[in-house]
Structure formats: structure tokens, C-alpha cells
């Protein structure tokens, strides 16, 4: 089976500055990979490069069979990115935001409404919350609405940048079940985190990044403790990791 993500010596620029400095990474369909590392390690840039939002300037970069160096726009419709900022229009309600994302992806109005309702139900945005403009939702509720967009779109590759940030305990366990269900359905999931306790148990593999490179790869899962090198990497001591 072809990997969902295949990066070899991938270099990407954020503006004029290198964001990825030769990343090697393969992610199989149905696999969950947690990416850890200190601030500035290149975690977000890795996700944005996989989404075709940041150009890969050298190396190999193939995502869902699309060569990002030839055409990085072709893959975009097939990936879902949960970024730092919830990609919501403030004046539209959660339901309208999800429906717009689906309609933009070419889904018919009737199907979009049904899928949006299902996704919002799953994220616990029901009743008045569903009709409230995103501007008036709390940060956690906005995060849930952004997750609902991802769930409704059901992409082949889930790219989640700190998915637990700003969520309460209930929503964090919801993220775990969403990630597990996506992987069961055959989607590849790459998520970044500063919280090994939350992300490592979800992952089949853990990738530690430092200085725009993959510094360490280890198995994930519930049984894997956040061993010292992992914790050091997350806290920001690059030298100890490399």
C-alpha cells in the first residue's frame, strides 16, 4: 500500500527562512503519527507542507499520491487541516461554517446539511450553540466547531496542529475517539502536540522534531511512557534529543 505521506530529505521554506531542513517521514493510511518537539522545531511547517500550503523546495514530497513539488494544490481538497486558528467566519454560525466548507468542497446542499448536523452532534454543538455566530462562541466551542469541519469533510489525511489546545477534558477524550475512528476508516492522521500524555497514547508512532528535522522516531500507544528523551524534546532542549 502506498504511504499517505512520503517525505525524503524534504526542505520547505516559510517565507525566506527554512522551516523544514531535510525531513524523512512516511505515514501509512490508517496510521496515527504524533509529532512532538519544542517551539520552532518545524511541527506546524510539516503539517502545512503536507497540506500543500508551504512549498517544498527540494527532496521528495508525495502526499496521497500527489507530488507536492510538481503541483501542491492538487492534494488540498483531500486533506483536512486543523490549524492553531479555528478556520471559522466569525459572523457565521457553527452550522453555517461547516456547511460552507462542505459546499466549497463540492458537496450538494442537502447532503452538506445532513453531514454538518451529524458532525456538530458528534462534537456536542447542539441547539442554540449551533446557530450562534462563531464570534460569540468560547475558544473551546470554536475549537469544537473547527473539529466539526474536519469530521464533516472526512479527508483522507488528517493534519491536526495541537488538537487538544483549549479543550476541556470531555472534548479531549472526544479528540481521541475522532482520531481513532478516522484511522479505523483508513485515514492517515498526523497530529502535533506539546502534551505527550495526551498525544502519545493516540499514536502508532511518535516523531520528535528538532531544528526542522526528525530527531527521533519511537513507537506510540498507551503502554509507552513519556520517557526522558521525549520529555526533554518537548521541553525544548534540542541538544539532548539529537
Amino acid at each position: 500500500m502506498d504511504p499517505a505521506v512520503h517525505l525524503r530529505s524534504a526542505v520547505a521554506l516559510a517565507g525566506r527562512f527554512p522551516a523544514l531542513s531535510g525531513v524523512d517521514l512516511d505515514v501509512a493510511p490508517g496510521e496515527v503519527v504524533a509529532v512532538l518537539g519544542p517551539n520552532g522545531a518545524g511541527k506546524t511547517s510539516l503539517l502545512r507542507a503536507c497540506a500543500g500550503l508551504v512549498p517544498v523546495t527540494s527532496g521528495d514530497a508525495v502526499v496521497l499520491g500527489c507530488d507536492l513539488r510538481e503541483d501542491r494544490t492538487a492534494v488540498r481538497r483531500r486533506v483536512g487541516l486543523l490549524g492553531h486558528d479555528a478556520s471559522l467566519y466569525d459572523e457565521l454560525s457553527a452550522a453555517e461554517n461547516v456547511r460552507f466548507a462542505l459546499r466549497a468542497a463540492g458537496v450538494s446542499s442537502r447532503v452538506a446539511t445532513a453531514r454538518a448536523d451529524g458532525a456538530l452532534d458528534r462534537l456536542g454543538l447542539v441547539g442554540r450553540l449551533r446557530r450562534t455566530p462563531a464570534l460569540r462562541l468560547s475558544a473551546g466551542q470554536r475549537r469544537r466547531a473547527a473539529l466539526a469541519v474536519l469530521v464533516a469533510r472526512a479527508p483522507e489525511l488528517w493534519l491536526m496542529d495541537e488538537p487538544h489546545a483549549g479543550l476541556d477534558a470531555g472534548a479531549r477524550s472526544l479528540v481521541a475517539s475522532l482520531v481513532a475512528d478516522a484511522a479505523t476508516d483508513g485515514a492517515a492522521v498526523v497530529l502535533t502536540s506539546h502534551e505527550p500524555d495526551l498525544s502519545v497514547p493516540l499514536a502508532d508512532r511518535v516523531v520528535v522534531m528538532a531544528g526542522g528535522r526528525v530527531a527521533e522516531v519511537r513507537p506510540g500507544g498507551r503502554d509507552v511512557a513519556a520517557a526522558p528523551p521525549l520529555l526533554v524534546a518537548v521541553k525544548g532542549d534540542d541538544a539532548d534529543v539529537a
Binding site: 497540506a51 494544490t73 488540498r76 481538497r77 478556520s87 466549497a104 468542497a105 463540492g106
Partner: peptide
């Protein structure tokens, strides 16, 4: 980003 990723 959402607009760019929508494929629109």
C-alpha cells in the same frame, strides 16, 4: 487556509 484547502 480553509479557503485554499477547500479546492474551490
Amino acid at each position: 487556509d480553509g479557503l485554499r484547502l477547500s479546492g474551490i
